[in-house]
Design a binder for these strands. Structure first.
Length: 399
DNA sequence: CGAGATTCATGTGAAGTATACCTTTAGGCTTAA
DNA sequence: AAGCCTAAAGGTATACTTCACATGAATCTCGTA
């Protein structure tokens, strides 16, 4: 029997250590969310008027990643949707992640995406933005209804395109005759509203909610609760959950990360063919998680971005981890020449560097070297393992 | 010696361009009465 | 004459380029102690 068939056999024989792996998946919404009772209650209170066909206040939710913001918002709105359905009240919930490249990362694309959420098609470009708004109004204003619009990671969108979008969104309601829209903005950045127009801010965040990070004990509870359902009995070694929680607590209480860590540890154990998830798997998982996260980001970037990133890697491995924009651009030109890529101008590359910085793949800070001009010091924000993975991805992309 | 001017290499804002896609409109062709 | 197709005209969004000016500390300059 070949190696491959052996693997398949094992896979098919279904002696998986998971009983339901979905429970550990990032997009899974559990029925109860521990330690977020008061937050959920508040969200529910704020959004409850929807069930009487009144427009709920706009809501802004702040908190670091993995503190259950998105989860709580989706959970609560799901319940509202369900009740509304039973009571025959027209409430529509829309969830959009504003970070997604090419989907909702500009004003036009955001509104276009909203239209698609209503099952209509709309051109990806070419229409005036006003026209897209008008079309959106037309669709939703056909009947009396409450729309709850959840804009996840809205800070990313605002940082990139300015706060005009928010202004337009807030004035939507005055243009609607039948329908009403409430906006639930979710932001990882606690201070980003400092940069937006105060008038817009006040109308947008009629209500505010801050999610505090989980502490180690809470994360541990969350983990064991989910692990119990996700894994078969006696699969997870004692101590694994505790260590997993400790990892996460170290990272400002990021529960999503902890869950993912546990899932990957499980997958690794399973792939290895062992019956138990051990600490060892957890350590490997931490590695893999970081690698996967970055691999995801990198492979979703356009070629030009990858080429710039590749230059950064090449330079930082040669020099002492830090490179300057001048030599970075030269290296980039060389790579373009070698790969038949049309080189962008330095101006554009400068922006690309900024965007990669925003993505957290590289660090770039502008410094002045006095007499010798000014530049940006660019360094990789990732470990050498991920670095190799990135190289692989990019090299594959260019072959 | 120290205050101010100079300088460098690049950051950064604004405006312009290319591309891809949109709607509208006018003209030409077909068709049915 | 009405209907339909096509192509041109005129519009927008987005990614990128071009142009021009801004930045900011090391270095230079020059007056002064």
């Amino acid at each position: 029997m070949s190696r491959a068939t052996e693997t398949f056999e094992k896979f098919l024989s279904n002696n998986s250590i998971f009983s339901n792996k979905n429970i550990l998946q990032a997009n899974y919404t559990p029925e109860n969310i521990p330690h977020r009772d008061s937050e959920i209650e508040q969200i529910a209170k704020i959004l409850a008027p929807a069930l009487k066909l009144n427009k709920p206040s706009n809501l802004f939710i702040y908190g670091k990643t993995g503190t259950g913001k998105t989860l709580s918002a989706i959970h609560t709105t799901n319940q509202i949707q369900q009740m509304a359905q039973e009571m025959q009240i027209p409430v529509k919930i829309i969830y959009v992640n504003c970070k997604l490249k090419k989907i909702a990362d500009t004003e036009y694309r955001l509104i276009a995406q909203l239209i698609r959420e209503f099952g209509r098609e709309i051109a990806v470009t070419g229409l005036p933005t006003d026209e897209v708004y008008r079309y959106f109004f037309k669709i939703i204003d056909t009947r009396k209804q409450i729309i709850i619009l959840i804009l996840d990671e809205i800070d990313q969108l605002i940082k990139k395109t300015g706060d005009e979008i928010l202004y337009n969104l807030t004035r939507i309601n005055s243009e609607l005759k039948e329908a009403q829209i409430s906006i639930v903005g979710i932001s990882n950045d606690l201070v980003f509203t400092d940069t937006i127009d105060p008038r817009i801010k006040s109308s947008l965040s009629e209500e505010e909610l801050i999610f505090k990070p989980y502490n180690a004990v809470q994360i541990q509870e969350i983990l064991s609760q989910r692990a119990e359902k996700a894994f078969k009995e006696n699969v997870v070694s004692p101590g694994v959950i505790a260590k997993c929680a400790a990892f996460a607590a170290r990272e400002h209480g990021d529960a999503r990360r902890a869950l993912e860590l546990l899932r990957i540890a499980g997958e690794l154990a399973e792939r290895e063919g062992v019956e138990r998830v051990d600490i060892k798997h957890l350590d490997e998982a931490e590695d893999k998680l970081e690698k996967d996260r970055i691999a995801d980001i990198v492979s979703s970037q356009p070629k030009q971005f990858q080429a710039v990133l590749y230059s950064v890697i090449m330079l930082s491995s040669k020099n002492s981890k830090i490179c300057e924009t001048g030599e970075l651009y030269n290296t980039y030109r060389k790579i373009c020449a070698n790969t038949n890529l049309r080189p962008l101008t330095q101006r554009r590359v400068s922006d690309v560097v900024s965007e990669l910085d925003m993505l957290g793949i590289i660090n770039a800070r502008t410094i002045s070297k006095g007499r010798y001009g000014r530049t940006r010091e660019v360094s990789l924000a990732i470990n050498s393992q991920s670095e190799k993975k990135i190289m692989e991805i990019i090299e594959r992309e260019f072959s």
